[in-house]
Structures are given as C-alpha cells and as structure tokens.
C-alpha cells in the first residue's frame, strides 16, 4: 500500500500552512513589534511627521507616507466589550471552545478596540465588562535557510487573558 503522505515534504516548513506570521528580521521590517512583545509591551508605530498612530504597525505612515516613524506603547489592559465562545468548526490549531473578545482599550488609547483570542480563560467565566490583560506566549519556531547554515527562528505571539479578581 502506498504511503499516505508526500515523503520529500516530511519535516519541511511551508508558510502557506502557517497560522502565525513570519516575524524574523530577515523577512519582516516590523520585527520590533514581536521583540517588544517579549518584554510585555504591546506597541505600534506613530508618524513623527504628522503624528498619526497606525495599528497594526507599518513601515510608512498611511496618512502622509512618511517613513520617519517611532514605536509607541498601547495599553496592555482593557475591558471585554463582547465575548463569544465557539464550539463547532474550530481549526485544528485551537482546542474548543475557542473564546474571543472584542476588547475596549479605553478612551485614551489611540487604538480603541481590538479583537483577541482569550487564553487562561475557563469556559463561561468571562463576562462583558470584565478586565483583561495582554498575554504573550511562545508559538512554534520555523527554519530560515541562510547562506551556510539553517537558523531556527523562535517566535512569540499575543492574546489577552482575564485579570484575576
């Protein structure tokens, strides 16, 4: 009986099937966002010329197209405005239930709302209005072929979690 997989692809990395971004500096000019995450900072870019704060971070200002940008910190705490739990049709990268919240980062934040997966959150415990905070965690690494070696690119990503009462 033939093997039910493709032998020469076994153990190979394909971005096509990766749920996480390629974060490494060799492939991504906003890699500082992920480096800031490692320090517990949730950041984005602000234009030094016109002052526009854009999220997600980018390499030019979407308002004036200046590339003179600086990193600023966004709030790492907010309130859950809407909470949804999904049990059916959850992709294999998550275990059901998949819990997401529409998070209000507050009137003073230049980015008012973000959508986030909730981690460290038992089912049916998070209510609208509850305080939540940034949570940073490791996600799978991938290889990068350099000239003479293959480097392993470690990665982190973020979600939010309930603030313990």
């Amino acid at each position: 009986m033939a093997k039910a997989w493709i032998p020469f692809l076994e153990g190979r990395y394909s971005p096509t099937l990766d749920v996480w971004p390629i974060e490494a500096k060799e492939f991504n000019r906003i890699h500082e966002f992920y480096e800031n995450l490692r320090e517990g900072k949730f950041t984005t870019t602000k234009c030094k010329k016109c002052g526009r704060v854009a999220y997600p971070p980018r390499v030019i200002c979407p308002e004036c197209y200046s590339d003179d940008l600086e990193w600023i910190e966004l709030p790492t705490k907010g309130k859950a405005a809407v909470v949804v739990e999904k049990w059916g049709g959850v992709p294999i990268c998550y275990k059901p239930p998949l819990i997401d919240a529409w998070i209000d980062l507050g009137e003073d934040s230049p980015v008012r709302h973000i959508l986030s997966r909730m981690v460290n959150c038992p089912t049916e415990t998070l209510k609208e209005g509850d305080e939540v905070q940034l949570a940073v965690f490791d996600v799978p690494a991938h290889p990068i072929e350099l000239k003479r070696e293959t480097k392993i690119a470690e990665r982190v990503f973020f979600a939010f979690e309930p603030v313990k009462k």
């Binding site: 971004p21 059916g88 998949l98």
Partner: peptide, 24 residues
C-alpha cells in the same frame, strides 16, 4: 476550516481565531 485563516488579515486576525467567521 484551517484554510479560512488565509481569508482574513492573516498576520493579525488570523492567529486570533476569526478565520472561520462564525465567531465574528
């Protein structure tokens, strides 16, 4: 289901779970 992650803003909303749209 997994491929739906490619149909939204992959690097930002994708890892947050709304690729399959019922949550949203």
């Amino acid at each position: 289901q997994y491929d739906e992650i490619a149909a939204i803003d992959h690097d930002w909303d994708g890892p947050q779970g709304i690729g399959p749209p019922p949550l949203w």
